[in-house]
Write a protein that binds this DNA or RNA. Structure first.
Lengths: 192, 192, 192, 192
DNA sequence: TATGAATGAGGGTTCATTCAT
DNA sequence: TATGAATGAACCCTCATTCAT
């Protein structure tokens, strides 16, 4: 946000850093990742990183923001679909499509939530907000389907995704995600 | 199990360290926990830790073993119950009873699986095995209930637990676990 | 004085920087002050500072010069007074009037002399010269008062001021300066 | 204090570090001194320093304590003298004897007070306390001499010392201290 | 076995200075 | 001249691991 007007600087360097942070932090975890790792991934000299982000935490925050952003854009696409059931199934579809990545590193938001919870800073709240956004959206879909227990169903769906992501990752088996995706699809159909 | 032959050494010091490791690692996460933390929690002098565990990884392994052990003993208790449905519901019950702890630190095994996956060592495989044991047991119950899709159902149940643990922890809301527990109970009933 | 020929450049920017340096360095000390601090205080872009001053040392030098300048102008005012005793008492007066600032940050010249002595560069000599100027002027006053021990008395007076500045600052008590000012006034009266 | 009982450790390492800190910080100033400098001066491996002092600030505090300690012992010696005038003159004597060191680095306590004042931490208060001790002791001597203005005189004497230390250091001229010492001796004699 | 102490390899961060425009 | 950005050397501090007794 802050530097968006400046034209002099290598364009999008801040964004490049945020994107690199999002990727590397997902792959290696927050604690295992050094600022030098992120700098290298973004092809930015180490010292220069601090021009854009004053602390490692701010880089983590930026990575979370990046995930939030891609979540919002995904939701934007899903909202194009007319029927709420189809929106939810499209969401499932996206998850299943990402199963290889998930098998390797887990759900980006979920692993971060898990790891950041162990720390004193407020970053865990930032991740919580991201998940909340998705939760709210899913709830709306169930509501649109006429379910009065929409909240509970939304929690169940997100939990199912987070849980299968963890198993997919732990066993490094993308098929787990695929199978659970099909099961959840049937479950959604059964709710109408 | 390990070292059961050596009787000479200070009784249970190794076990005390393993137990302390299990607890502290759950509370703080692997990366955030120093050997000194564990030594202090076990009331063992720092230097002495290395007599029992040559590396930090071995301590982590011992903590995983401790979790495996308590899982086995839990399974032992559950197996007393005659009906597989009741066994599964008792399992659910245990999860719900632990919801406060889960809200604070997540599922011990799940958070470790998530964190250890980011590391190069083979510790992630150790956690995977622990989860595998539970998975297999749940599968057996579904099989005993006459379900041919027992594996898929087992995966779904464990995933649901792992996922709701993560949400419970992220939002620090034990009620999430309670509600999902009730929902899963109904789901199990519906499978007969 | 310096650069008075160049008229083209943004008027007084160099002076603004020197003045800002003098103030901020007094408030924060040389080591605690970054070039960015001075740039901000002078409302000059960081990079631009280096157009006027090639190194931090040169900025410090400029700050010292600024203090020298204000010392010279003060002496100019004092010299208007006809009697040397009155000139010295007016000097005391000025010190006492600044006691609040001194309580907060000490004597600008004294604290710099103290800090710069610890460094390898020749800046300590620059501060020494400033103090020398004052010392010489005070000596002249005592000489005009007919004292043959004028040098010793001058040293004593400046030392008393530097010392009480340090105590005033250390204990953050401006009253110390006020009381010592009165005492020194009586002392001067006693010398005639 | 804390480690005084332990016999295993290289005896007095903590003290060696504190002494080295006191010396090096006096010579180079707080900001100019790195922990590595102190470690080298004490012949202690860098990392090991942190076993005894958790932060640089604690090392500075230890150095201040060392100065306080030597002040106390000096006072102990002076108190042996029967007459308060002689005690004060002996104090002066000690200052004059140290004039070479003072010319090179200033008064250890004074320069620290000056430098630490610029920092946010509470270390300045620690130095203030040290000076306070000396101030109180000097005041007692003047009181014993029957002076009702003992506090003011004490402040004046300490200020004179601090000030002449600064000048002695700034001009690197130990004779300044010597001359002022003689002058203050006469002054004390004149007060009886 | 037990224990305080020692070691050293990183990691995060700061900042004077330089660069490119 | 003006300016945001880039660079890299240093510094403080942590911690797994080893040592000496």
């Amino acid at each position: 946000m802050t530097h968006s007007k400046s034209v002099r600087q290598s364009p999008g360097k801040r964004e490049r850093l945020a994107a690199a942070a999002a990727q590397v932090l997902h792959e290696q975890g927050v604690e295992q990742t050094t600022i030098a790792d992120i700098a290298r991934a973004a092809d930015v000299p180490l010292g220069n990183v601090y021009y854009y982000f004053k602390t490692k935490d701010q880089l983590v925050e930026a990575a979370i923001d990046a995930h939030a952003q891609s979540l919002r854009s995904m939701i934007g696409v899903l909202d194009e679909l007319p029927a709420p059931q189809d929106r939810l199934k499209a969401l499932l579809n996206g998850w299943v499509e990402q199963r290889e990545l998930t098998a390797r590193h887990g759900c980006p938001t979920g692993t971060m939530a898990s790891e950041l919870d162990k720390r004193a800073d407020g970053l865990d709240q930032s991740v919580a907000k991201v998940i909340q956004v998705l939760l709210d959206w899913v709830e709306q879909q169930f509501q649109a389907m006429g379910r009065s227990d929409s909240r509970e169903l939304a929690v169940a769906l997100i939990a199912a995704y987070q849980g299968i992501s963890l198993l997919t990752n732990t066993f490094r088996d993308p098929d787990l995600m695929a199978a659970e995706g099909r099961r959840l699809e049937r479950w959604i159909d059964s709710l109408t």
